[in-house]
C-alpha cells in the first residue's frame, strides 16, 4: 500500500515539475505562430487563433537569419575539426611516453581553470594583432580546443590495450593509420558523446562571435538573436520565432541521441 502511494507521489511531483520546466518551450513555440497583436493580448490565448508563419518568413527574408544560420553551421563544422585535434591530443597523452609529458599535460589541465572573462580581452588584442578580428577564423580559433575534452578522451583511451597498438606497429602500420583505423573505432562511445556536446557547444557559441564579429555578415544565430531582441524589443512573436529557430534543431538532435549522453556520463568517468 505504502509503496503505491509513494510511486504516485513521486510520479505526480515529477509530472508537475516537468510541466513547469517545459512551460518556456511550450510558450515559445505557440507564441511564434501568433500574430504580433495576438501575442500581446491580455488575457493571452493559449492556442494561436490564426496560425501564421509570417515571423519565420520575415526572419529569413528580411532579417538575415539565413546568413546567421550558415555562419553557425560553419562554426559547427570547424568545431568538429577541433574535436579531431582534441582526440589526437587525448591519444598522444594516453598512449605515448615522451620527455616532458607530465608537465605538458598539467599545463593543458591548468587551462581549464582560466575563465573566458579573463582570456577574452587579451585574446581579442592578440587576434587584432594577427589581423583576425572581424573574420571567421577569429571567431573559430579561440574555442577550438577544450582541455576538459582532451582529459575525458585521454581517460577513455588509457583503457585501450597497448598490445593492440604494438602489434599493428609490428605489422608495419603507420602511426596515423593506427590512429584512424584502430583507435577511433575503439573510442566510439566517448567520441559519440563528445561529438554531440561539441555540436551543441558550437551551435550555442555566443561570446566569441559577439566579441570578434563587427560585421553582421559574420553573426551567428545567437548573436543575431540578441541583436533582434535589441532592435525589435516589443515584437514578441518575432523574438519567439527567432528563439525557436535556435532551439528546435538542437532539441530534435537531442531526442535522437539522448541515450548516448545519459549513458556517456557513466562511461566517461564522472562519478
Amino acid at each position: 500500500m505504502k509503496n503505491r502511494f509513494e510511486k504516485l507521489l513521486i510520479t505526480s511531483a515529477l509530472l508537475i515539475g516537468g510541466f513547469i520546466v517545459s512551460i518556456p518551450f511550450i510558450w515559445m513555440i505557440l507564441s511564434s505562430f501568433k500574430s504580433e497583436r495576438e501575442a500581446r493580448t491580455m488575457p493571452p490565448t493559449f492556442w494561436p487563433q490564426e496560425f501564421t508563419f509570417e515571423h519565420y518568413i520575415n526572419l529569413f527574408q528580411n532579417l538575415n537569419f539565413g546568413t546567421y544560420f550558415t555562419n553557425t553551421l560553419i562554426i559547427v563544422l570547424f568545431a568538429m575539426l577541433g574535436l579531431l585535434f582534441n582526440t589526437m591530443a587525448g591519444y598522444g597523452f594516453a598512449k605515448f611516453q615522451f620527455k616532458g609529458k607530465e608537465a605538458v599535460f598539467i599545463a593543458v589541465l591548468a587551462t581549464m581553470m582560466i575563465p573566458a572573462q579573463v582570456s577574452m580581452i587579451p585574446v581579442y588584442l592578440l587576434l587584432n594583432q594577427m589581423g583576425l578580428t572581424n573574420t571567421m577564423s577569429g571567431i573559430i580559433l579561440p574555442g577550438l580546443i577544450a582541455a576538459f575534452n582532451i582529459f575525458l578522451i585521454r581517460q577513455f583511451m588509457t583503457t585501450i590495450p597497448n598490445d593492440l597498438i604494438e602489434s599493428a606497429r609490428i605489422d608495419g602500420a603507420k602511426e596515423f593509420r593506427i590512429f584512424f583505423q584502430i583507435i577511433i573505432p575503439l573510442s566510439k562511445p566517448v567520441l559519440a558523446v563528445q561529438a554531440i556536446l561539441t555540436f551543441v557547444g558550437a551551435w550555442n557559441s555566443f561570446l566569441w562571435p559577439l566579441i570578434v564579429a563587427n560585421d553582421q555578415a559574420l553573426y551567428t544565430l545567437s548573436v543575431g538573436l540578441a541583436l533582434l531582441q535589441g532592435q525589435h524589443s516589443s515584437s514578441f512573436a518575432l523574438q519567439m520565432a527567432g528563439a525557436t529557430v535556435m532551439v528546435i534543431p538542437v532539441l530534435i538532435l537531442f531526442i535522437f541521441v539522448q541515450r548516448y549522453i545519459v549513458e556517456g556520463f557513466n562511461t566517461t568517468g564522472i562519478k
Binding site: S222, V223, A226, T244, V247, I255
Partner: peptide
C-alpha cells in the same frame, strides 16, 4: 530525465529572450 535535461543544452540567448517575454510586466505569462 530528458525533459529536465533539455534546458541545459538550449541556447542561453534564446532562453533569455523567451524568459524576457514570460517576465514581461504587462503582457508576460
Amino acid at each position: 530525465r530528458v525533459l529536465f535535461y533539455v534546458p541545459s543544452i538550449t541556447n542561453i540567448v534564446a532562453i533569455a529572450v523567451v524568459w524576457g517575454f514570460l517576465y514581461n510586466m504587462d503582457v508576460g505569462l
